[in-house]
Amino acid sequence: MSAKWSILPLVEDHLDTFRDQRTNELRRQDYLSFYAFPLAIGIACYLFDFKMQDPASILAGIAVFTALLFGLLIHIFSMGLRVNDDPRLPKSGKLATLIDQLQANVSYSILIGIITTAFLIAAAAIRENNQPINSFLSAIITTLLVHLMLTVLMALKRTRAAYAALRF
């Protein structure tokens, strides 16, 4: 896609972070952890007929959380600029790679947050008389929420690794 709103580069950058640090090979277990596991949770929610009671409450939290991720992305951008401008730090290497990966993961987290927000808006809009939403939509939202949390945890781990790389 060449449209200005294309999300494909965000997804590609994020998936490119699923590499082994030592060998630079793609790690299949990352795909299982970040996609198959949340999907399995979502399928289980559907099979056990899980129905969300109040999507509007979750919507408020995810909307704020996604906004905070936007702020974090701006901070990562400025951190990348500072590292690039600091003559004491190499322009490539572990720290630069970690910052690039962190930027990719947080950007992707924002994308998942936006998608989750859209599903929650739809769920809140179609909900009738304070009834729970159906198990299919509940399963999709649960899958997205688990995926989002795992991706944020990966970004947190990369933040720690970047800090450790700065401590020479």
Rank of each mutant, 00 (worst) to 15 (best):
S2V: 07
A3L: 08
A3D: 07
K4H: 06
W5H: 05
S6D: 04
I7S: 05
I7P: 00
L8R: 08
P9Y: 12
P9I: 10
V11E: 07
V11H: 07
D13A: 14
H14W: 13
T17W: 09
F18N: 10
F18A: 10
D20R: 05
D20W: 04
D20A: 08
Q21T: 11
R22K: 09
E25Y: 12
R27V: 15
R28M: 15
D30T: 11
D30M: 14
D30K: 12
Y31C: 03
L32W: 11
L32A: 10
Y35I: 10
P38I: 00
A40G: 09
A40Q: 03
I41N: 03
I41H: 02
G42L: 08
G42E: 06
G42Q: 06
I43N: 01
F48T: 11
D49K: 15
D49G: 13
F50W: 13
F50D: 02
K51H: 12
M52A: 15
Q53M: 12
A56G: 09
A56S: 11
L59E: 06
L59N: 04
A60V: 12
A60P: 02
I62F: 07
V64S: 14
T66A: 09
T66M: 04
L69C: 01
G71Q: 09
G71P: 04
L72T: 13
L72M: 13
L73Q: 14
I74A: 15
I74C: 14
H75G: 15
H75S: 15
I76F: 11
F77M: 13
F77S: 11
S78H: 15
S78I: 15
M79E: 14
G80T: 09
R82A: 10
R82T: 04
D85R: 09
D86K: 02
D86T: 07
P87E: 11
L89F: 03
K91I: 03
S92M: 03
G93E: 01
K94I: 13
L95S: 01
A96P: 02
L98I: 10
Q101A: 12
Q103Y: 12
Q103D: 08
I110D: 01
I110A: 03
I112S: 00
G113F: 02
G113R: 03
I114H: 01
T117W: 04
T117F: 01
A118C: 08
R127Y: 12
E128S: 08
E128N: 04
N129W: 01
Q131A: 11
Q131R: 05
P132I: 13
F136K: 12
L137I: 15
L137T: 14
L137Q: 11
S138Q: 07
A139V: 06
A139W: 07
I141Q: 00
I141Y: 00
T142H: 02
T142S: 09
L144P: 00
L145I: 01
V146S: 00
T151S: 12
T151V: 15
M154P: 03
M154F: 14
A155V: 06
R158E: 14
R158N: 13
T159F: 05
R160K: 09
Y163Q: 05
A165P: 02
A165Q: 04
L166S: 02
R167P: 00
F168G: 01
F168M: 03
